[in-house]
């Protein structure tokens, strides 16, 4: 096991450096990139915390829709292929698929952009 700081603490240190010192020290055309890099550190911190749980939950949702288990990538590919097939879905399945996909994008947003799905107004 690695000694501390752990991954989360290291990403925090890198993000702090970028946000507090590097942005002010680089020429203007690099500032946006540094800001984005700092934000990516924050995303990775949340991904380290939530990623495994989110992926498990998504795999369970897909397995329930498709009626069998598999790896997350396999299940995603299978659902995408079913959706690409123009054969109609029944209304119950259609709604269930949409709800499952919305649950997944919300979980993705909890990592990539927390709060994005909670904002008022039309999407």
């Amino acid at each position: 096991m690695q000694y501390r700081p752990d991954a989360d603490e290291l990403l925090d240190a890198v993000a702090d450096l970028l946000e507090r010192q590097v942005i002010a020290a680089v020429p203007p055309h690099l500032q946006h990139q540094v800001r984005v890099a700092a934000n990516l550190c924050r995303i990775l911190q949340r991904e380290a915390q939530l990623g495994t749980t989110n992926d498990d939950a998504e795999r369970h949702r897909l397995a329930a829709l498709l009626g069998h288990d598999g790896s997350l990538l396999e299940l995603r590919a299978e659902l995408a292929a079913r959706l690409d097939d123009p054969a109609p879905l029944d209304a119950v399945t259609d709604r269930a698929v949409r709800d499952a996909l919305l649950a997944t994008v919300r979980a993705d947003l909890a990592i990539a952009k927390p709060g994005y799905d909670a904002t008022a107004g039309t999407p």
């Binding site: 897909l62 990538l73 995603r76 590919a77 659902l79 995408a80 292929a81 959706l83 690409d84 123009p86 698929v97 949409r98 996909l101 997944t104 994008v105």
Partner: peptide, 11 residues
């Protein structure tokens, strides 16, 4: 890689 949400919206 397949993105089922986009496949759904495309459908």
């Amino acid at each position: 890689r397949p993105e089922p949400a986009f496949s759904y919206v495309l459908r």
